[in-house]
């Protein structure tokens, strides 16, 4: 049976279907169920086109519905019938286009028809379908997991493999049984297939993009890094003395900002703005206190008078800072507290 014969039959059957538009769609579909095969027999005998041998489709339809015990078909009796009618026409046109593509694409694959090649792939589709079904089930019942490559239920490897095996075996079993013949099982079957295909497409891109951003996803997406918990910075010089008014810069001269310039008042427990410039924001909260209380330098900022640090000694910052050890020269907390960028900033990174 060649393409033109199939087309001729499809067109003729569609003509008959249209002429029977007055019948309920289910009745009509049932009546025409075997007509294509039957017409193929007629055509196979030769002797002209279907219309030559059987007359116009309308006449055939009238004879058919009369002999089958139905009232003669007429015009569509309802809007519903008209809609199903149009749908049937579109279906016929689509079927014809698909058949045409089938034959045209076939030679590219080395087959007479593309469908012959696709039929060979059917068991592969069964396996893939089983895998997708297992993934879909795992995805539905395991709410918090992101899509991976295994159908994980609660992160259990064994359960994942078991589910995978069940899905694939079940799918193969279904495949060997064939498409359900009854109407509603068949519809459910097709709906599930469409769902799986959509799930596969979306899931495929989801997993792929997750794999693309894997390298930095931990930092980029959770906002966590090792400095997240840093609220203040305390610099100690070579003699273990706390250095105040420290300014931090990276290798490009950009200031490094860590923590927030707020301090917790030890008595009230309230957060108050820091009175110092540079680090530490809160000298009082230093983790290490050298034995010599004079080592703790007062806030050097002269621009905030009337706010003496609680433990500020009398020694001036410029007197305390010059240390004997000049090798680890920290930026001397000057009274201006604004070190010029060129003046050997603390380097980080």
């Amino acid at each position: 049976m060649n393409l033109t014969a199939q087309d001729e039959i499809a067109v003729y059957v569609e003509g008959v279907r249209l002429a029977l538009a007055g019948l309920p769609p289910a009745t009509r579909d049932e009546l025409l169920e075997d007509l294509p095969e039957h017409l193929a027999e007629v055509l196979a005998e030769g002797g002209g086109s279907l219309t030559d041998r059987l007359g116009p489709p309308e006449a055939y339809a009238a004879e058919l519905s009369a002999s089958a015990g139905f009232a003669a078909g007429g015009q569509p009796t309802s809007r519903y019938a008209a809609v199903t009618d149009r749908a049937a026409r579109h279906r016929a046109r689509i079927n014809q286009a698909v058949r045409g593509a089938d034959v045209r694409v076939g030679p590219l694959l080395g087959y007479a028809k593309a469908s012959e090649f696709l039929v060979l792939l059917r068991p592969a589709w069964w396996v893939l379908r089983g895998y997708l079904a297992a993934m879909a089930v795992a995805f539905m019942f395991d709410g918090n997991s992101r899509l991976g490559l295994m159908p994980r239920l609660g992160g259990d490897d064994f359960a994942a493999v078991l589910l995978l095996a069940l899905g694939i075996l079940g799918s193969i079993w279904l495949g060997r049984r064939g498409t359900p013949t009854r109407k509603w099982p068949r519809r459910a079957f097709r709906l599930a297939t469409v769902y799986l295909v959509l799930f596969a497409l979306i899931g495929f891109f989801e997993v792929d993009s997750a794999a693309q951003r894997d390298g930095y996803s931990e930092v980029g997406y959770t906002g966590w890094n090792e400095f997240t918990d840093v609220r203040d910075v305390y610099a100690y010089d070579g003699d273990g003395r706390l250095v105040s008014g420290v300014q931090l810069y990276d290798q490009d001269g950009n200031p490094i900002r860590l923590g927030e310039p707020y301090c917790e008042d030890p008595t009230s427990g309230m957060s108050v703005p820091s009175r110092t410039l540079g680090y530490p924001h809160c000298p009082e909260a230093a983790p290490y206190h050298p034995g010599d209380p004079s080592a703790v330098t007062p806030p050097p900022d002269a621009s905030t008078p009337g706010s003496p640090a609680p433990s500020a000694p009398e020694a001036s910052p410029s007197g305390a800072a010059p240390a004997a050890d000049s090798s680890s020269k920290p930026p001397a907390p000057s009274s201006s507290a604004r070190p010029p960028a060129a003046k050997e900033p603390a380097r980080v990174g």
Binding site: E30, L31, D34, L35, H38, V42, R53, L54, A59, Y60, A61, E63, L64, S65, A66, S67, A68, G69
Partner: peptide, 9 residues
């Protein structure tokens, strides 16, 4: 032809 087909159905 249609009569036979319809009758069979």
């Amino acid at each position: 032809d249609a009569s036979v087909y319809g009758t069979l159905r």
